[in-house]
């Protein structure tokens, strides 16, 4: 089976400082990979390198494209990479404001990706957008409201709808539940789990919240100081951590 995404030796330096160093892994279709680690451990740098937002200093990110099979997205031309970014890839930002157009209505936000890939029928775009807003539990009466009038949880769900409307195969998520209160987090996770399973999405989720990976991720990588210190099945890593830092991370979770 061809991996959907094959990452080899990704390294990103900020001057003398290491962002992330020599990270390699394969992601297979339908698989959800979690990346955990403390603040500053290089999780987001790695994610941005893979999603094409940052240019890594070394390494390959090979994506199994629909038309041409496996291609290195780092060396492919910018138009191709940006095309991937609005068709087969999706990126969910930690802060919904970074991923949304705050001055554009909810359905306009969802429709933007459709229009970006050439949809030109207003009625169809609106129907699809309304359908997707329903799927992320945003009421049909709010489709013409701007995201500025939405709560934090609604904004995050809107961002997810906007990303998934074109049926991507790979979703990058950067702390999707960060900054939301626990009950909203739980609902969002429930929703995400349902969507990921229904659409057979592959996803890479960066988070510092172990509960998120426990619920969503099949596999887990633990990062510290820009390097992967432990990787394995989620339950295996969380229940029987081997590396000292993983042990610290797991034992730091407060039990209620």
């Amino acid at each position: 089976m061809t991996p959907l995404l094959s990452v080899q030796g990704i390294t990103k330096r900020y001057g003398a400082h290491i962002g992330c160093a020599d990270v390699s892994f394969d992601l297979y279709p339908g698989e959800v990979m979690g990346i955990v680690g403390e603040s500053g451990s290089g999780k987001s740098t790695l994610l941005n390198c893979m999603a094409g937002h940052l240019a890594p200093d070394a390494g390959q990110v090979v994506f199994d494209t629909r038309t041409d099979g496996p291609r290195d997205t780092i060396t492919m031309s910018e138009p191709e990479r940006r095309m991937l970014g609005r068709t087969d890839w999706a990126f969910v930002h930690q802060h919904a404001r970074d991923g949304l157009r705050m001055g554009v209505s909810a359905s306009g936000n969802v429709g933007e990706r459709l229009m970006a890939v050439g949809e030109r029928h207003y009625g169809d775009i609106r129907d699809k957008a309304t359908d997707w807003l329903g799927r992320v539990e945003i009421d049909a009466s709010r489709v013409d409201d701007r995201p500025t009038t939405f709560s934090g949880g609604m904004q995050q769900r809107l961002q997810i709808a906007r990303n998934l409307v074109t049926g991507p195969r790979l979703v990058f998520m950067d702390e999707p539940t960060g900054g939301l209160d626990v009950s909203v987090q739980a609902r969002l996770l429930d929703l995400l789990r349902g969507l990921v399973r229904d659409m057979e999405l592959s996803a890479i989720i960066v988070t510092h919240d172990l509960a998120v990976v426990r619920l969503l991720a099949d596999r887990l990588m633990v990062m510290k100081s820009g390097r992967v210190v432990e990787a394995g099945l989620t339950d295996q890593v969380l229940d029987d951590p081997q590396h000292a830092y993983s042990q610290l991370l797991v034992s730091s979770v407060l039990q209620v």
């Binding site: 933007e112 229009m115 207003y122």
Partner: peptide, 10 residues
Amino acid sequence: YGLMHVKLYE
């Protein structure tokens, strides 16, 4: 140019 249509959509 998808964004241009977002304006018309709005």
